[in-house]
């Protein structure tokens, strides 16, 4: 049953997230300095410090603090941001859409483009086009993200001013349909940078997977049935080579988040990546730990999604977890 599999995976993801929450709690506790002093200010009187401790529950035993922390996190309360003086959830949600827009667009372009190029490459292995795709994939994923981002800005925003250097919208945004086009126009360079990095990996992985699938016995059997190479590629090899790609896409989410932080900062994209850097700069612990937990949840969810997708594609995974 696929449901049993899903339940098991959800439970595992939940445990993962819980571990991250525990770790983030420990980081706060281990961080140097008394949070009460930080909250009250350097010149606070001992009475005021005591009041602050009581107000924030810092005088309670650590286990009790943990339970309070856990229950509040589980109910969606990640605390108050110090710099924004709003709840962390509010701050995160306010910055969520630009990041989701950037990350999903880049991922879709990277995966779709990578698979497409991989197919293109594997259809004629060792041909000129295969070599060209191979070399460019290799180059793309060896380039550091920040370098590529800066290069993009210099090349296509400064020297040839086709695109804006940063931001998500013009200072005086147009209205209606043009507002959307304006955002798209701003997205071009950051999306190109972010997807370029992952593009190469997917292209190479697809090519390798396809070539392997084409050399498997079931492809020989397909040839013996009279199918053309094209039919074998699309009806048999592609599905089989998708399995490692799906797993990779799931585990790569943390790499994407890492690259996202860099790209958002290079292009001043108003998303979570710039937010986390600001959080660190201003020592906004509730905000940074909140973001940490949030990213952990996203990572766990994406892995979960990849596992479920894999189980849907691969009948062997399904039956290994129960009849």
């Amino acid at each position: 049953m696929i449901w049993r599999f899903i339940i098991k995976r959800v439970a595992l993801s939940f445990i993962t997230v819980l571990t991250v929450v525990l770790l983030s709690f420990m980081i706060i506790k281990l961080a140097p300095g008394d949070p009460a002093v930080l909250l009250a200010g350097a010149g606070a009187t001992p009475e005021y410090l005591k009041a602050v401790r009581e107000a924030y529950g810092l005088n309670l035993p650590i286990t009790q603090q943990l339970t309070i922390y856990l229950t509040s996190v589980l109910t969606g309360n990640l605390g108050h941001s110090i710099t924004y003086s709003r709840t962390v959830i509010d701050v995160i949600l306010g910055r969520l859409i630009p990041t989701v827009l950037l990350a999903t667009t880049s991922s879709i372009i990277a995966i779709a483009g990578g698979i497409f190029l991989g197919l293109f490459s594997a259809a004629k292995p060792n041909s000129l086009r295969d070599e060209l795709i191979n070399i460019s994939s290799l180059v793309l994923f060896s380039i550091p993200v920040f370098w590529l981002g800066l290069f993009m800005i210099l090349a296509f925003a400064v020297n040839i001013p086709l695109f804006p250097t940063g931001g998500m919208a013009s200072t005086t945004p147009p209205t209606g349909l043009y507002a959307i086009l304006d955002v798209v126009w701003h997205m071009v360079l950051p999306v190109a940078t972010l997807s370029a990095v992952f593009f190469g990996i997917y292209a190479r992985l697809t090519r390798g997977g396809l070539l392997q699938a084409l050399s498997m016995n079931y492809s020989v059997a397909a040839r013996a049935k009279g199918l053309s190479e094209r039919e074998i590629l699309y009806h048999h090899a592609l599905r089989n080579s998708l399995l490692p790609i799906i797993s990779l896409a799931g585990t790569q989410i943390n790499l994407i988040i890492g690259a996202l932080v860099l790209v958002e900062n290079i292009f001043s994209w108003p998303g979570l990546g710039t937010l986390i850097v600001q959080g660190f700069l201003h020592r906004d612990y509730p905000l940074t730990t909140g973001l940490l937990i949030f990213f952990a949840i996203i990572t766990a969810l994406m892995n979960l999604f990849a596992d479920i997708l894999n189980a849907i594609v691969d009948p062997r995974i399904r039956s290994s977890v129960g009849e």
């Binding site: 498997m216 016995n217 079931y218 020989v220 059997a221 397909a222 040839r223 013996a224 049935k225 009279g226 199918l227 048999h236 599905r239 089989n240 594609v313 691969d314 009948p315 062997r316």
Partner: peptide, 20 residues
Amino acid sequence: RGKEIGMVFQDPTSFLDPLM
């Protein structure tokens, strides 16, 4: 192939697409 000449192999399971 497949129409006029059919083929059967050793180790049959590996000659079947595992996902179909």
